[in-house]
Nucleic acid binder design. Structure first.
Lengths: 249, 249
DNA sequence: CAGCGTTGAAGAACAGCGTTCGTTTATTAC
DNA sequence: GTAATAAACGAACGCTGTTCTTCAACGCTG
């Protein structure tokens, strides 16, 4: 019988499992820490970089560990969305300026989305239920109600309003995502537009008379111009339903 | 020496590569056939089912074979988009009815998207260059020009118009995509809305007075109502720029 | 008719994804 | 001191788009 003496080395084929090497420097995993990390990755490298593996790696662990705190990736993105929605500054309603205030809120949301990669993709189509997102909707409703927009119209408008902003921000990142590795997406876009314009102008005029004639108008204007225009016609349309006011025009 | 007689069986270790077993029943691979197959899969199972492997399998081959005819998946989706865009029926411009005609075009596009799974995802943010998509834009421009919309406004409007329709169709499929396996997405959605409404009504009224008060308006209305509303305010906004006409209201 | 270059097709593989399973570890409760 | 619990983890599954390399068939030239 072998003496029950000093430690025998572990058989080398069963590789030692390194134990739970929790660095004291590392905060324990939590939902908040995971969301924080996700936002960090998002800001630095965009939404496509948000993967369970990447976040886990950033936290010095494996992807499986995250699932103890977050049900799935969708839920994580929802949390990310709520967190950054808190950054949107909202105005105090001034009934005389409700249309301009509505536009200001839209610009705030857009600026927030642009600060945080292309996270807008995670917003489109989702029914808002998280507090910070509801806070924005509440403000929009208050502005429209103050402006005399009927409840039914206002209710539908918040939905369409959010959709428009989401779509604009997504659109802005689709082309940018196609820019070759490392090149500035803005430059890439600026270099791409003239090509499209030339293409439109070279189309057969008998089939596409208006596109050929309006190639300049179709390709002119940058992201901001297009957003402002969409905002403008939408607010005009909403305002046309406001009670006791002449339609804007 | 072995007689050079009847066929010797192939050595079993070099697994026979089956040769180019082109069934006479199978049409040879081509870009058109691949697009056809993709649309078939799209219609039957939605856009997520469009994978190179799935299409290849449908054609009785492997994914690599597709790349001889299509540069990548994005290009394939672009072709799919152009193909189905041909289905959209366009009206002959009637200046007196340009607003209603614009809405009709939008409804046509939406119906087309809905027929074909959730392919709208592939459209948002892409600059249209394919003939059948340009054909639609050309028609929209003609309608607006006929209605007296200034060129600059019309040029921006087509972009926003397309964006709105894309976003609406995407939105419609996001929630549907979350419905559990096999369940009718429409039913799932119908069962989900009342829960959201109850949630809104149960929110703290001091923080969200308008959301609580307007829970009904916010959750009322189906897909079609919301689309029609968005269409309405957008066309109203565009019309407010039309020359020589009083703004609609 | 033989040989050859081209081209379409195909198998296997690569790196990455979200998620799950079973196990190990550290911490807490008794 | 020991049993129970919850967190953490390694490995794996089944996907994805894409590429590399090989191979068979065809059209052409001599």
């Amino acid at each position: 019988m072998v003496a029950d003496g000093p430690e025998i080395p572990a058989p080398p084929w069963r590789k030692q499992r390194a134990g739970r090497r929790r660095d004291a420097s590392r905060r324990p995993l939590s939902r908040e820490l995971i969301v924080d990390t996700a936002i960090g990755v998002l800001d630095a490298e965009g939404m496509d970089a948000i993967t369970m593996r990447r976040i886990a790696q950033e936290l010095g662990t494996g992807p499986a560990s995250l699932y103890a705190h977050v049900a799935n990736k969708d839920e994580l993105l929802e949390d990310v969305l709520d967190r950054i929605a808190a950054e949107v500054a909202l105005p105090e309603p001034d009934p005389a300026r409700w249309q301009e205030q509505l536009k200001e809120v839209a610009r705030e949301i857009r600026a927030m989305y642009r600060r945080h990669g292309d996270i807008a993709r995670a917003s489109l189509g989702k029914i808002p239920t998280s507090p910070n997102v509801l806070r924005i909707a509440e403000c929009e409703l208050a502005l429209m109600r103050a402006g005399g927009v009927p409840p039914k119209i206002a209710g539908l408008a918040v939905d369409r309003f959010a959709q428009m902003i989401d779509a604009d921000c997504i659109e802005g990142t689709v082309l940018a995502g196609k820019s070759p590795e490392g090149q500035d997406p803005h430059e890439f876009y600026a270099a791409f537009v003239p090509q499209v314009r030339a293409y439109f102008e070279a189309l057969p005029a008998e089939r596409f008379p208006n596109i050929v004639a309006m190639a300049g108008e179709l390709t002119g204007g940058d992201d901001d111009d297009r957003f402002e225009f969409g905002l403008d016609i939408m607010v005009r349309g909403i305002a046309s339903y406001a009670e006791g006011r002449p339609p804007a025009g």
